[in-house]
Write a protein that binds this DNA or RNA. Structure first.
Lengths: 204, 204
DNA sequence: TGACATATGGCACACTGTGACAAAAGGATG
DNA sequence: CATCCTTTTGTCACAGTGTGCCATATGTCA
């Protein structure tokens, strides 16, 4: 990896960190792109070359999480019940976050904290989740041999999985150490598994 | 009701209908507020007095649906299992849409059709759903006598209910008559009820 | 070093959304 | 109908996001 790419990655993270700190300090809405750009000494124009929008900053981890889930899902045997595969994919995300570098972990916790008191950001987050849901639904529909445009059970399976993910990460609100958050996430997965009828995801 | 209020309501619907038609015709992004305002012969400034944002147009039915759900929920006995109450609230929304005027029904179907091929609008829609979810969670937490900031099961119950709603309304894509859409919605509710373990929403 | 690819900055621009004030229209009263 | 008051509307100015375009600067490699 050349100097160029390393520098770019460094800049990208610098922007993200500066932005998150500003957001936590003075709120999301009242922080302008100009301020963020100023804090890392780049032009506003360059900011938009690293992040296509201000919103995109907050969705940093969603991009990565989606990747992890899709990879984990691809690794599961094709004849495994689909919801079981999805729960494994969820755990893969947990494992990934847990094994991340301290800097990544801090960023993760800050971004999570940012959602508190910013319903608009929760909305963004959920909207991005819907995009992931769509992609997962395609994979699951393919595995089940059905048309994703028509099959409701496929969408229900994926929606329940993503609901679990969302509840696990967002609830409880307020701060929390990484291990606390991850522990709650695991609890939520178990709660979901307890709540569903065995074999529900294998209906015709 | 005075002339004033009637005229306002008429303008509001004229804006909405003009906007939806323009969106379907030339896409959401490439339709400007100026165009919409021009089509109903008002100033762009006035547009923003009727709808706080362009996005808000698409969320027309969500506002109403949320109201219906909260009212229906308030009417359910307090000792009913929470998920059962929520499913009744969902059915109340279905009943409401079914009994709406032809003009409302047409608007509903057009807005639904608009979501096809506009992932951004699906995102908006889902984000607004998260807001509803938050409100429902408060009601359910109250009925269960738990703290909504901490109790995961409450959020899971509400999230599963909203997932059902979303899948029912959005899937299958493409056009469909009102009765087809409503029939699918009912099917989805039944599918969900079949998928969950009896009493799952009564865990400690 | 020179030549090339890529990253950046600066500029102009379109669009969304808001505050402030003046003009117009609705509604009530004599 | 004339008057007065309230609400709605339009105009203007402005802040902020996001994009296209072109010149410049920086890294990459021969």
């Amino acid at each position: 990896m050349g100097l160029r790419e390393r520098k770019k990655e460094k800049t990208r993270l610098a922007i993200l960190d500066a932005a998150v700190d500003l957001f936590l300090e003075q709120g999301y809405e009242s922080t302008t792109v100009e301020q963020i750009a100023g804090a890392v000494e780049i032009s506003p124009r360059t900011f938009f070359r690293y992040f296509t929008s201000k919103d995109h900053l907050v969705l940093w981890f969603h991009e990565h999480g989606e990747e992890i889930m899709l990879e984990a899902l691809a690794d599961r045997p094709g004849d495994e019940p689909p919801f079981t595969s999805l729960m494994h994919a969820m755990r893969a995300v947990v494992a990934d976050v847990e094994s991340s570098t301290p800097a990544d972990a801090e960023r993760f916790l800050k971004l999570r904290k940012l959602l508190d008191g910013h319903p608009h950001l929760v909305g963004l987050s959920v909207a991005r989740g819907a995009e992931t849901e769509r992609r997962l639904a395609e994979v699951i529909a393919d595995r089940r041999g059905v048309d994703p445009d028509v099959d409701q059970l496929t969408h229900l399976i994926v929606a329940f999985a993503m609901s679990t993910m969302r509840v696990g990460f967002e609830c409880p609100r307020r701060e929390g150490t990484m291990s606390e958050v991850m522990h709650r996430m695991t609890e939520t997965i178990e709660l979901t598994e307890r709540s569903l009828r065995p074999g529900w995801d294998l209906q015709h």
